[in-house]
Amino acid sequence: MTKICRECDEPTDEPIAVALEHTASCGGRVVYLCPLCRSVLGVVPLDQHPAGTGGRVRYEEEMPA
Rank of each mutant, 00 (worst) to 15 (best):
residue 57 V to Q: 02
residue 32 Y to F: 15
residue 10 E to V: 02
residue 25 S to R: 07
residue 22 H to V: 08
residue 47 D to P: 01
residue 26 C to G: 03
residue 62 E to Q: 13
residue 8 C to H: 03
residue 23 T to Q: 10
residue 46 L to N: 01
residue 4 I to V: 15
residue 5 C to G: 07
residue 18 V to T: 12
residue 2 T to R: 12
residue 49 H to Y: 03
residue 19 A to S: 14
residue 21 E to L: 09
residue 62 E to K: 13
residue 5 C to K: 09
residue 55 G to K: 00
residue 41 L to G: 00
residue 52 G to K: 07
residue 48 Q to I: 00
residue 32 Y to L: 05
residue 41 L to E: 14
residue 61 E to G: 14
residue 33 L to G: 10
residue 23 T to F: 10
residue 45 P to L: 08
residue 43 V to M: 06
residue 19 A to T: 03
residue 18 V to I: 15
residue 47 D to H: 14
residue 15 P to W: 01
residue 52 G to L: 10
residue 46 L to S: 00
residue 45 P to K: 08
residue 59 Y to L: 15
residue 51 A to I: 11
residue 49 H to E: 05
residue 53 T to K: 04
residue 25 S to H: 04
residue 57 V to C: 00
residue 18 V to N: 04
residue 43 V to W: 01
residue 31 V to W: 03
residue 28 G to T: 06
residue 44 V to N: 02
residue 49 H to P: 11
residue 60 E to P: 00
residue 42 G to E: 11
residue 55 G to Y: 00
residue 3 K to N: 07
residue 64 P to A: 07
residue 32 Y to R: 03
residue 10 E to P: 00
residue 21 E to S: 11
residue 13 D to N: 12
residue 16 I to E: 12
residue 52 G to E: 12
residue 59 Y to H: 15
residue 49 H to S: 08
residue 56 R to N: 04
residue 32 Y to C: 04
residue 38 R to Q: 15
residue 65 A to L: 11
residue 14 E to P: 00
residue 53 T to G: 02
residue 31 V to C: 04
residue 23 T to C: 03
residue 42 G to N: 12
residue 37 C to D: 15
residue 35 P to A: 09
residue 1 M to T: 09
residue 18 V to F: 08
residue 40 V to A: 12
residue 54 G to Q: 09
residue 24 A to K: 09
residue 9 D to Q: 13
residue 49 H to M: 04
residue 54 G to H: 11
residue 39 S to V: 02
residue 59 Y to T: 03
residue 65 A to D: 12
residue 46 L to D: 00
residue 44 V to K: 09
residue 45 P to V: 08
residue 43 V to E: 02
residue 25 S to L: 07
residue 12 T to H: 10
residue 40 V to G: 01
residue 27 G to V: 03
residue 14 E to Y: 06
residue 24 A to P: 02
residue 38 R to F: 03
residue 13 D to M: 05
residue 3 K to L: 05
residue 9 D to I: 01
residue 59 Y to I: 03
residue 26 C to K: 08
residue 15 P to E: 05
residue 25 S to C: 02
residue 16 I to R: 13
residue 10 E to Q: 15
